[in-house]
Write a protein that binds this DNA or RNA. Structure first.
Length: 440
DNA sequence: AGCACA
């Protein structure tokens, strides 16, 4: 018989060596928490920018007495605890240790993963993204893509400091309205760190840009308005050949594993990579061969055939627009047979290859083979997994009014619409190169 | 200004 259902009342929480701090400035950083708390004892862990407004934090002392000292001190002090001039409210946390202090997206790096909420890929041009983020320093590269979380961009800066300045200033903010199409409501930026350090941009396109290499070839199929469906002599859509086959598995009464597919497709040559994913309620797989010829042979030989007798697991094959799959070397849904098993552990730091697709204008979807290090998708900052959402693309890609050729780069930075009230620019005292935006 | 979500 406990009274566990009883709510915690104010001022009656049991002491904990973990303190809960609230009303912090939203740009508060760990160092400021430590500065505030260390007079009372040793801090073993912190978690800042907690909550939807990022204005809460947790601080964990080595022992309970230190936490009690801090709480009692400020309970009777005439000077309230402050960070950046804001009064900070301190109480015991209802937990006794800080768990999971750093997720993958919290490990600082020079590449930001930006999720632009509430927009479609066509709503925010890469030039707008470039403009917004250039306020904090030279943007080396940008890659955009769509996945379940929404429209996302990886933005590469020179260093982690510049990236952090951009993140601190823009996370939770909106892109200024005048930079967006009228139909876009709000578009909040959610920014975390990517595990990438150097994006591999193969082409300048409406989805990717390498500003360090202006001579990088333009991918003509990736320019808005240029792409037209490739049509064969018979008037049907023509699929360009590829080393990567897309297999749709029909009537899948039995589990089809990576190993099963490897066995089936190895009959025609070396299988380099396999990825299995769900698409529209069905199961599909991508199978990569070293050359187009092998892929063509396998495609013709297996098309319409069943993996198991009795019409089970019938294969329908087409060429994928992927040219090089970016898959986890070893998982239950994917395999990279080109990676020696001995080096699987070293794969942890392997960079993502931003693969371009061959000229395949009927696919207006992403030309990239992988997503970024999305929290929850690439735990521990490991190699991002191949993203099944990339496969089908979006046939009805909405054209953005500005193509990348006609877009000019305004030298001045935009103002940011925000509900907050921070007059400050250049967070943390660091003065970013370029023109910092004003916030109002 | 009121408790983290990988």
């Amino acid at each position: 018989m406990s009274t566990s259902g009883q709510p915690q009342f104010r001022y009656t929480q049991t002491p904990s060596k973990v303190l809960h701090l609230r009303n912090l400035p939203w740009e508060c950083i760990e160092e400021e928490l430590i500065e505030l708390c260390k007079p009372f004892g040793k801090i073993v862990n912190t978690k800042c920018n907690v909550g939807a407004n990022r204005n809460q934090a947790f601080v964990e002392f080595t022992d309970l007495n230190q936490a009690i000292n801090m709480v009692t001190y400020y309970a009777s002090s005439s000077e309230p605890a402050q960070v950046r001039g804001k009064t900070v409210y301190i109480q015991y946390s209802n937990r006794h240790e800080i768990v999971n202090n750093k997720g993958p997206g919290d490990v600082p790096g020079n590449v930001l993963l930006v999720t632009i909420e509430g927009v479609e890929a066509g709503d925010v041009s890469i030039d707008v993204i470039h403009l917004v983020f250039s306020a904090f320093g030279f943007v080396h590269k940008i890659a955009t893509f769509e996945k379940a979380a929404g429209f996302q961009a990886l933005i590469q800066f020179s260093d982690a400091e510049t990236a952090a300045a951009a993140r601190d200033a823009l996370d939770g903010r909106s892109i200024p309205r005048y930079l967006l199409p009228d139909h876009v409501g709000s578009c909040h930026l959610r920014i975390s760190y990517s595990a990438h350090t150097d994006l591999n941009i193969k082409f300048q396109s409406h989805r990717s840009r390498d500003y360090t290499n202006p001579y990088l070839p333009v991918n003509p199929t990736a320019i808005e308005g240029f792409a037209q469906p490739a049509v064969g002599p018979d008037g049907k859509k023509k699929e360009p050949e590829s080393t990567v086959l897309l297999a749709s598995i029909e009537n899948m009464q039995y589990a089809v594993t990576v190993d099963v597919l490897h066995t089936v497709f190895s009959a025609f040559g070396t299988v380099q990579k396999i990825a299995i994913f769900e698409k529209n309620g069905g199961t599909q797989a991508l199978i990569q061969y070293p050359d187009v010829t092998t892929a063509a042979v396998a495609k013709d030989a297996l098309e319409g055939h069943c993996i198991y007798d009795g019409g089970y697991c019938k294969l329908h094959l087409s060429y994928s627009r992927h040219t090089d799959l970016n898959v986890k070397a070893y998982s239950d849904k994917s395999r990279d047979y080109t990676i020696p098993e001995s080096s699987l552990l070293a794969m942890q730091q392997a960079p993502t290859a931003w693969e371009n697709r061959p000229p395949a204008p009927m696919y207006q979807g992403s030309e990239f083979g992988a997503g970024g290090a999305v929290p929850g998708q690439a735990p521990g900052g490991q190699v991002p997994s191949w993203d099944p959402n990339m496969q089908a693309g979006r046939p009805n890609f909405v054209s953005a009014p500005g193509t990348f050729r006609s877009q000019t780069y305004a030298p001045s930075a935009p103002a940011y619409a925000t509900g907050s009230h921070q007059p400050n620019v250049g967070p943390g005292g660091a003065s970013p190169p370029g023109q910092p935006p004003y916030y109002r």
